[in-house]
Amino acid sequence: MPGQTGRVIYEGNSWQARCEDEGMTIAPNQRVYVVDRRGTTLIVIPESLLRP
């Protein structure tokens, strides 16, 4: 659901994560890139945004 916090595996650990674009939904098991960190929450974007 857009704007919700989810979880990602990063460097072997589970982290809370949010999409940089809060209006976007990221499907389960979709690859993402970490673009920032806010406290213990990673800010991510879907890999598909970076591929042509």
Rank of each mutant, 00 (worst) to 15 (best):
M1I: 05
M1N: 03
P2W: 04
P2A: 08
P2V: 00
G3V: 02
G3W: 00
Q4F: 02
Q4Y: 01
Q4K: 09
T5V: 03
R7P: 02
R7M: 02
V8W: 00
I9R: 11
I9W: 00
Y10M: 04
Y10G: 07
G12T: 08
G12Y: 01
G12A: 04
S14E: 13
S14T: 15
W15A: 02
W15G: 10
Q16N: 14
A17M: 08
A17S: 11
R18T: 11
R18C: 06
R18I: 14
C19E: 05
D21V: 01
D21N: 14
D21Q: 08
E22P: 05
M24K: 11
M24C: 01
T25Y: 12
T25S: 12
I26M: 13
A27E: 13
A27L: 14
A27V: 03
A27P: 04
P28M: 09
P28V: 06
N29S: 11
N29D: 15
N29H: 15
N29T: 10
Q30F: 07
Y33P: 11
V34G: 04
V34S: 05
V34K: 00
V35S: 08
V35P: 10
V35D: 11
D36P: 06
D36K: 11
R38Q: 06
R38C: 07
G39I: 06
G39S: 05
L42I: 03
L42K: 12
I43M: 11
I43Y: 04
I43T: 13
I43G: 10
V44I: 13
V44N: 04
I45F: 03
I45P: 05
P46M: 07
E47K: 04
E47A: 14
S48Q: 07
L49N: 10
L49W: 14
L50R: 15
L50P: 11
L50D: 15
L50K: 15
R51V: 06
R51L: 13
P52C: 04
P52H: 08
